[in-house]
Design a protein around this nucleic acid. Structure first.
Lengths: 253, 253
DNA sequence: TTTGCGCGCTTGTCCTGACAATAGTACCTA
DNA sequence: TAGGTACTATTGTCAGGACAAGCGCGCAAA
């Protein structure tokens, strides 16, 4: 019944770069992940124990543990005290993370296009004040975009940013993701809080997304924060459900 | 501009139980979380540095770090090297985790009710074979339930479990969550992979959920795995979007 | 045959210590 | 005044070690 232990070839770990900027534990995690995807470590396989693995690779146990933890958090591995660490059965799928729809589409080989519907500076309404934590009535940048891939409209993106971004180059949004522009300005998003739901399409939305009025739409509201904890972006997005879904891996700790 | 450092009262940490079964780092994390919710640590506040905090509490730095990490993963704190750790601005909300809808409703003070629509043993179809990793044509338990809260129907839950669960007490499902029953059998779910989408209601679904045919529904497909990585449950759920949404916090690491 | 006990294996927790990398600030200089 | 440089504070990474706790298996006893 118990799966046999899998001895990983040392080759997988030879060129670990101890001086470079990439942390050791992350290098190890990446190699393990690769081994899982290539089924060198097949579904259900048991890993060598942490101590042995560490010794064989010349790496301390905390570092090995942290590498393994990274994959546990991704839902690729499962640990049991007294037993060992095993590869989770079943297909893996990519997770919701802090990349945008734009980058999502790029990665899956589709060609994302963006049409800017409007971009205006306006006073913040109550919802925005609540979400971004800005002053009541202060100016915010309000951008509406239509995102398509391979010619088919996928989503309407409605984004609001605080006053210091009113000088954002709107034209650049046609070929770049909003998050890419923010990164270029030195802003890195670290935390996002999202609500995912559904509702029926309005007439305008139906027209833009080529869906009949009243058809089902997937919705996502998000507030994103930078590394100092400040709210940077509030977005209300609607997606055509046949063309986009959210994939999430949940891990109990 | 920089937020003042917040000196936490030591009282918050006095009765840490070093001998009990609850890990120290988790006790510390809980106390910190409490302090954030009670706004003893207000939005944007800067924490004491890790070394000092550790010394004051008589706890080593790795333990303090792990406690803080727990809250970073929850989206409550943000760290910056060279700067410090700060409380994230903006309201916090609960996360999608490995609890079920039933427990969700209970926690928010609603009274969940379950009507069993059907519960049958049947051969696995292709989708199920793919999701659960069982043999083609082998028997599986197929349960359909209607979940309501305070009298209003919220969701249709369609669940499939492998053959070893065919002796599950169906009646118990009327007053307990599926996950509770599984736990009682010694099965602990550790990882779940979910897809969240939307679609239009069928006539049957509309009738059950008091929605018009064609109305928008929120959908969630999930495969859950136990601590040995084996697939335990495959579920296809549909929710009335006005009554249920998914809340997710995403953290970049 | 079944139950219970003990033992070894493996992960979980916690500690100490050291050095690296980064951000912000104060200061010095052109 | 402006710009760069050095310093300090703080988190990030990594090592090594010790003991605790849970799980499974074999063996002995009932």
């Amino acid at each position: 019944m118990a799966q046999p232990e899998h001895q990983l070839p040392v080759d997988l770990f030879i060129d670990l770069d101890r001086s470079g900027p990439v942390p050791l534990y992350h290098q190890v995690a990446k190699r393990l992940e690769q081994a899982i995807y290539e089924e060198i470590l097949p579904s259900g396989a048991r890993l060598e124990n942490e101590v042995a693995l560490g010794q064989r690779l010349g790496i301390s146990r905390p570092t090995i543990r942290r590498a393994i933890q990274e994959l546990v958090d991704k839902g690729l591995l499962v640990r049991r005290r007294g037993v060992g660490t095993q590869v989770v059965h079943g297909k893996v799928h990519r997770n919701v993370d802090l990349t945008s729809l734009f980058e999502d589409l790029q990665r899956t080989g589709q060609k994302p296009e963006t049409r800017i519907l409007s971009a205006e500076t306006e006073p913040a309404n109550e919802t925005v004040v609540e979400a971004l934590g800005v002053e009541v009535g202060s100016d915010v940048l309000h951008i509406k975009r239509l995102r398509s891939a391979d010619g088919a409209p996928i989503a309407i993106l409605d984004n609001i940013l605080p006053a210091d971004f009113i000088d954002l180059e709107i034209e650049a949004l046609q070929s770049h993701a909003l998050y890419q522009l923010l990164r270029a300005r030195g802003v890195t998003l670290r935390v996002a809080k999202q609500k995912i739901g559904a509702r029926e399409a309005t007439a305008t939305e139906g027209e833009l997304l080529a869906v009949r009025k009243g058809g089902a739409l997937l919705t996502m509201d998000r507030t994103a924060f930078d590394s100092s904890g400040r709210a940077i972006e509030y977005g209300q997005h609607v997606y055509r459900p046949e063309l986009y879904q959210f994939e999430i891996t949940v891990v109990d700790r």
